[in-house]
Every structure is written in C-alpha cells, then in structure tokens.
C-alpha cells in the first residue's frame, strides 16, 4: 500500500449529501479487475453518456480533472460494501475525501487502500466547500501526521483519526502483516473456543 503523509492538491466540492457507492462506481463495473481502468469508472453514469461522450459534471471540468481531494456533504459513500467505489476514487487520483460523515464500510475500505477519509464538523466542511466554490481550482493541504487540513484561506482544521489507521496509512502498512504477529494468540483463542462450542466444528 502507498503511504499517505501530506497532500496538497486541487479539491473538488460536492454539495449533495448521501452520495452512495453505486454513484461512485455503478455496480456493473464491479467485475473490472483492479487497475487503471477504474479511473473512467468513477461516477461513470454522471460523467458519461451512453455513447461514451462526456456529460457536464464537475470532474469533467478543468481543473477538476486533476483533483486529488473531494470535499463532500454528509453520509458520503453510503450503501453497498463494494470496494470498487474506493478503487475508482484511487485510480482517478483522489487520495482524500473530506466530509461531515461517511458510510461506515466505505470509510473502512478507504483506509485499507491508502485513501484518507477526513471527518470534519458540518460547519467546517460547509465553509471549505463555499471557499472552493468561490475559488475554482483552489488547493487544500492535508497533513496526516499533524492531523490537519489547511483551507483556501489558510485556516487550519484539526481532525481525529484512529491511531492505528493513522499509523498504517503513514507507513503504508497492510493489515494482514499487522495481524500475522498475533497468530499465536489467534490459535490459542481457537483452542479454548472450539472446546466450548464443539457443535460448530
């Protein structure tokens, strides 16, 4: 996994709440194997007409084609657990989504793929979106080690993140490596557990 440390990138504002994973990646693309093809899948049905031509959509406009951050409204990534929504963001080049709240599973999936979900209070996320709407193409800076977002006006917003998630993202650590260290504990757990619940085995 690619480490996430700091990022300064163009941020695209998404003002509608409840953007679900089916919009991020329409389900019919789930069969696409992971890789660069997912860049075109992101928001596919909002970005492209049936004949493949482009619709007027924020990510089809300059300079948002090279956006690295999305600032959204509440409940971003709700819906299906399919991780392809995250692959699509990743391949498009988005490494950070800022929103007042996220679908639980989506936020989890982000962290496992080197994407940083940043939860900011509604008022702060709204204010940043207003700035971005007023300054098309403005950049934000996200510093994971410091746990801050610096907005268009230079104001610094602190965010919380679980220390383990932070460590894994900073170091690009895979969860499985982390867990393998506990293998003896898992096996010990199984021994007593299986005795207690013999009917399961």
């Amino acid at each position: 996994m690619k480490p996430f440390t700091t990022l300064t990138a163009i941020a695209a504002p998404f003002d509608q709440p409840n953007i679900d994973t089916n919009q991020l990646c329409p389900t019919r693309f789930n069969k696409v194997p992971r890789g660069p093809r997912y860049a075109a899948v992101l928001f596919h049905d909002l970005r492209f007409n049936a004949d493949g031509s482009e619709k007027d959509f924020v990510l089809n406009r300059e300079p948002y084609r090279s956006a690295g951050i999305i600032v959204a409204d509440r409940n971003f990534g709700c819906g299906s657990s399919r991780e392809s929504a995250v692959y699509a963001l990743y391949e498009f080049g988005i490494s950070c989504v800022i929103a007042p709240s996220f679908g639980d599973i989506f936020a989890n999936n982000c962290g496992k793929n080197g994407l940083l979900p940043v939860m900011l209070p509604t008022a702060e996320a709204d204010a940043i979106r207003r700035q971005l709407n007023a300054n098309v193409g403005a950049t934000l800076t996200v510093d994971l080690a410091a746990q801050t977002v610096t907005d268009v006006e230079g104001e610094v917003h602190r965010f919380d993140i679980h220390p383990v998630r932070r460590k894994c993202l900073l170091e690009g650590l895979d969860d499985v490596d982390r867990t393998r260290q506990y293998l003896p504990a898992i096996e010990a757990f199984e021994t007593s557990y299986r005795r207690e619940r013999s009917w399961l085995y």
């Binding site: 657990s81 995250v86 599973i105 989890n108 999936n109 496992k112 969860d175 499985v176 867990t179």
Partner: peptide
C-alpha cells in the same frame, strides 16, 4: 456485518477482523 474486499482478504488470511 458486511465488509469490503480488503477486509474479506484479511478475514480469509487470518479468520479475524479488526
């Protein structure tokens, strides 16, 4: 509960989940 593919990979490799 539901999990994404990375978490499912973790479950398959370790039979556990964080």
């Amino acid at each position: 509960f539901g999990v994404g593919a990375s978490e499912m990979f973790h479950v398959m490799a370790t039979q556990t989940i964080w």
